[in-house]
Design a protein around this nucleic acid. Sequence first.
DNA 1: CTGTTAGCGCGTTCAC
DNA 2: GTGAACGCGCTAACAG
Lengths: 347, 347
Amino acid sequence: MPVTIRDVAKQAGVSITTVSRALNGYPDVSLETKRKIHEIAKELGYQPSTLARGLVMKKTHSVGLVVEDLSKSRKGHHFMFDILCGVHDRANELGYDVILFTVSSAEQRETSYADLCKARQVDGAILMGIRLDDIYLHDILQSDIPCVMLDVPFVGSVYGSVSSENVHGAKSAMRHLCKLGHKKIGFINGHQQAAVSQERFEGYLQALEEAGIAFDARYVYYGNFEQIDGENGVKELESRDPEISAYFCASDLMALGAVNYLRSTGRHVPADVSVVGFDGIDLAFMTYPSLTTVVQDRYEMGKQAANLLVGILNGESGKRIVLPAYLHEGQSTAAAPQTIRMSGNCM
Amino acid sequence: MPVTIRDVAKQAGVSITTVSRALNGYPDVSLETKRKIHEIAKELGYQPSTLARGLVMKKTHSVGLVVEDLSKSRKGHHFMFDILCGVHDRANELGYDVILFTVSSAEQRETSYADLCKARQVDGAILMGIRLDDIYLHDILQSDIPCVMLDVPFVGSVYGSVSSENVHGAKSAMRHLCKLGHKKIGFINGHQQAAVSQERFEGYLQALEEAGIAFDARYVYYGNFEQIDGENGVKELESRDPEISAYFCASDLMALGAVNYLRSTGRHVPADVSVVGFDGIDLAFMTYPSLTTVVQDRYEMGKQAANLLVGILNGESGKRIVLPAYLHEGQSTAAAPQTIRMSGNCM
DNA sequence: CTGTTAGCGCGTTCAC
DNA sequence: GTGAACGCGCTAACAG
């Protein structure tokens, strides 16, 4: 039995319409009654029901944040969380609440994102962590639900995207390694159903060409952005060519996995092997050696996504937003070791 | 113009009442019409409006997740996020959606948690990161909104709490240090408006007494759980007594701050000084030296919280749930160094 | 300036 | 078995 608009009306001795108008700041209410109504509303602790309001206004002032496999992404550390915070903060600033939707890749597959959004009648949605081959991705783009995707660069009239300069970022990382004299550079990429993987691959190619190094598919490994993939990537790539002197990883977690594996097998980073990451998670700066990595501002990505979505809700058309990503030089990279080692004569 | 129950009814040539009954699994509908209605509903992509349903049922099947200063807690890493994931996963399993509420400590203070919940008509709320002196904490407990608090051990008929064995955990950490021969142990606690700080302090006291060490208030520093507080804590405490040989920190971040500061000023951890943390964040196991810390399962805390809340919504009464916390021995603790150093004679 | 009426989409009596 | 009518709390159109 929450207090409704009717309670306020009764108490104030006016009709509910008048209360509605007064509280919603319509001009056509006498100052006196308006004041009185506000007073009584506050006194009674009246909160308009967003349900009822949403029903009639056809706007709920809420956005859905759709995440693929939220809890799994915990391991991915904070990546999702930073974005989530950004989305939430900006959405709140703009007067929107955030409802969390997850689809645990296997499980709830019977319900599409679009259905989730329809049921809760969110005004729009923000999607993150969605694979390009997701069966429901098409679905929601087809629907007329306004949405913004993170790291999936599609654009339409009611949907847009936010991502980082992945091509440029990857190129910067590779340029850095090339400049240090590395010729044989392993690329531990993310899985191929992520747009970022494709973009970073493009950057990798461009940098190779720039440096006059021929592309060799044997130097590319596809992982899943997680730590273990960094380890596996190094194992696999060095089995293909033991002379690889540097690894560029498409995530910091993979880079850390790579570093840890290399160290555990007696190699020194960066003296023997250099490693570059991607993301700029806090962890990257706290380990020893700290990681040379391509930093992207995930919190800002979230804010921009929320901002863009609300823009679309206000009638603007969808667009693609690309945020800067820049190289941060840590301690995990150094000049390529000479091919001829000076070993054995220093005793 | 989403498809409503009326569209389905018209298409099926029956009344909306029948559609409602068929879709909600009532028995008193002929199998034939039931089948037909289901078919048409699917065909039309009909999704019942949770708004309308909530309005009439007075249940929205949603819970609010109230966080104090969400975005600030990003720095706290993963702590909030893990809980959030647990809450979300379990809530979803039980058929509830999660709506995120934040109160940016300074800002939106005009709106109380209770009001947020009332407006969105969530069925219940889960609160985390709330300070004991929060002006609105009392507010929501007074209201009849069912809720579960994390790390705030209050219990009533429609509210409960989930926390870790903070007393026991702290005691384990301290026992470990005492057993290693440490006599002068600094305690870098969290701020005093967190229940966990009070509990961990209690554990600290108990362990001291057990070890026959007199309590000395000079050995206690109150921080804010963040990295910088670990550094400041060490500075302050060692200025009070330079012979402190071990620090027990109420969070891993503070422990890391302590370790980094100690190392940066030439001390070896754990050879010269031992450090114990609390939380067991991923980071704690990835640094060198890895942290000896008291591990709590935050994801599980979140799940338990959601579970408890839904229990309350189903008529069970509130209770307090305490989850285990155990000591994990990492590389940041070692036997106390001898008071008489063997320095100066080893050249 | 204010009240009356209608209807948002749905579940639920109560008749038939 | 099924349908008509009512109401959840609110805003909007239309009087007065």
